[in-house]
Design a protein around this nucleic acid. Structure first.
Lengths: 344, 344
DNA sequence: GTGAAAGCGCTAACAC
DNA sequence: GTGTTAGCGCTTTCAC
């Protein structure tokens, strides 16, 4: 009979009966209402502990229209940027005793839209969003914003929406990365990137182009978009590109293409940095032990996650009404992949 | 007045009024009950679409005692294993139209216990768990199992609990990794690991020891536990260890120590693999472009996540009553860090 | 300081 | 085939 698997969950009603009080009193006592005497509060808390009472979150959510839950919507997670960002987000979420639902769009616009339709259900009090590459049309986001649900963009931001955001100085970083390669003597710098609508990608391409056009000598500008989901395909694309255009420098805008670029160079027996110099936007800790150590533009991913979550909670707690935009600086970490080859 | 921010959420009651039906009929129609005529169903669905009706998940959860949500509890996420595992989990979760709450314990037993007390609230229908290193006492887990909440361990499993699990063949893999180094001529192989109670860590250490004791010649067995959260500290620990014991081989049981070990060797100007050979349990894609390419024991992380989630849903849907344990094979990827130096 | 009662939005047994 | 009704567990007015 006392099979624990069958033991009913203890409800507030049971607590009330046990104590000879009403559920109203118990509820108030547990929420530390001023109406309740200290003595009763103590009794209630003691009994709650003894009976292992755990409030049913759905009952209170239903009653209060508050879920104490946020949604984190990301394109992917197999990437050190988002891993670190989630850690930052989680820090704040747990601090506020909130819960975080995680959803991946896999860069699919359709999946993103589908997720958004359900977000309106009240399941979450707010959303942290990094849009998919395919997201050009942002009606689904605007619609959600119109319902008044707090939303904060991080890293991958859609243009033209009145929502808070946290991003890095992508244009400047790409400019600096490109300038760095120019300073190192590169004359033919290609940009390796992916297709997509998030402002971030455009800013990085723009930074690259501006750095080139600020130079005096004849320009070589060439953008390769690696659109495949499969590394093997991208390696081939990069190899073809290198064989056709013979770039002596690569600025890579997304983390996962670094490995592909290295592999492509390896297969072509191209020496980094002697024959081609590389710098990549990435947070991977292994950058410094790569062959050769990879120069990187490192984003403050953890901090971005933290700040995005903080902005969201400011909205949730009504502390902040204006739409805030934060821009955090990335750091250029210059390593051997982009500096004169000591052996060369 | 029609400020969208203030527009009330449309409820089933509104739908019913709009259609001149009762909420019962609407509810049944939406759930495609056999009691409702095709015509009514069509009308209801049309109206729901038109009015943008989204069911309140808390109301149904409260009513049905089903949350359609699972919890994913992990030590950390800044690690390629868990990133990939989450992707696998998410695939299955979205397939079942479920939601996934994510919690990080940061390897803290206390945090894990704290999370567990709340899990009993009904907020989730099931749990996917990878225990923290500190988790020796598993009462909190046993308690939850006793309530009948489905739980599946993955990768980091606690011993002696009657719960489903998905893991890799850790003992065998560590045995093979160690044997491999022995075959390559190593005589003094150290194990670099972390302290902790999950069976996985013990199995890996055991595999290492068994491989050594299966050898005939005089044995060197030495386990270094890198307990710090900070890479810099661990690099120093590893340097000290190398300087004191002069190992000619390292088997590393956890991903993040690979970078520390490489850094330590770099700082000591020790040549990998000429002077010291290394093999590490890791899923990082960059292993092949490290300096030198790192031999790895690669776990099928994505697949593990998928299978763990599948086992959980089998329990949730009542398709599986017996407690299942799955063991997936890891793959040894032999690269330059553990093979004879071509230049040496 | 405490309790009765209504209701959050949905579902399902039961009536008609 | 459709409607009435009770109730999931909690919060909160309002009465006492």
């Amino acid at each position: 009979m006392s099979d624990p698997k069958k033991s009913e969950k203890v409800t507030m009603k049971m607590l009330a009966i046990e104590l000879g009080l009403s559920t109203a009193t118990v509820s108030k006592a547990l929420r530390d209402s001023y109406e309740i005497s200290a003595e009763t509060k103590a009794r209630v808390i003691a009994a709650a502990g003894k009976l292992n009472y755990i409030p049913n979150p759905f009952a209170s959510s239903l009653r209060n229209s508050r879920s104490h839950t946020i949604a984190i919507i990301l394109p992917e997670i197999a990437d050190s940027f988002f891993s670190q960002a989630i850690n930052g987000i989680e820090t704040i979420v747990s601090q506020y005793q909130y819960h975080a639902l995680i959803y991946l769009t896999h860069e699919s616009y359709q999946r993103e839209v589908q997720l958004f339709t359900e977000l309106n259900s009240g399941r979450v009090d707010g959303v942290l969003l990094s849009v998919s590459c395919e997201t050009a049309d942002t009606k689904h986001i605007q619609y959600l914003l119109d319902t008044g649900l707090p939303l904060v963009f991080f890293d991958r931001i859609s243009k033209g929406l009145a929502a808070a955001s946290v991003r890095t100085n992508d244009l400047e970083s790409a400019y600096l990365a490109t300038s760095h390669l120019l300073t190192q003597g590169c004359k033919r710098i290609s940009l390796l990137t992916i297709d997509g609508f998030p402002a971030m990608l455009q800013s990085r391409a723009k930074g690259y182009k501006e750095a080139l056009s600020d130079e005096k000598y004849p320009l070589y500008s060439n953008i390769l978009s690696c659109h495949s989901k499969y590394d093997a395909d991208n390696i081939n694309l990069i190899k073809q590109h290198i064989e056709e255009y013979h770039p002596d420098g690569l600025v890579i805008t997304v983390e996962h293409l670094a490995t592909s670029a290295y592999m492509a160079c390896k297969e072509l027996k191209l020496k980094i940095p002697a024959e081609i110099k590389i710098i990549c936007f990435t947070n991977q800790l292994t950058a410094s032990i790569l062959q050769p150590p990879l120069s990187t533009v490192q984003q403050p991913a953890y901090e971005m996650g933290k700040q995005a979550a903080e902005l969201l909670f400011q909205q949730l707690t009504g502390k902040q009404m204006s739409v805030q935009h934060r821009v955090l600086p990335s750091v250029l970490m210059i390593r051997e992949s982009s500096t004169p080859d000591i052996n060369g």
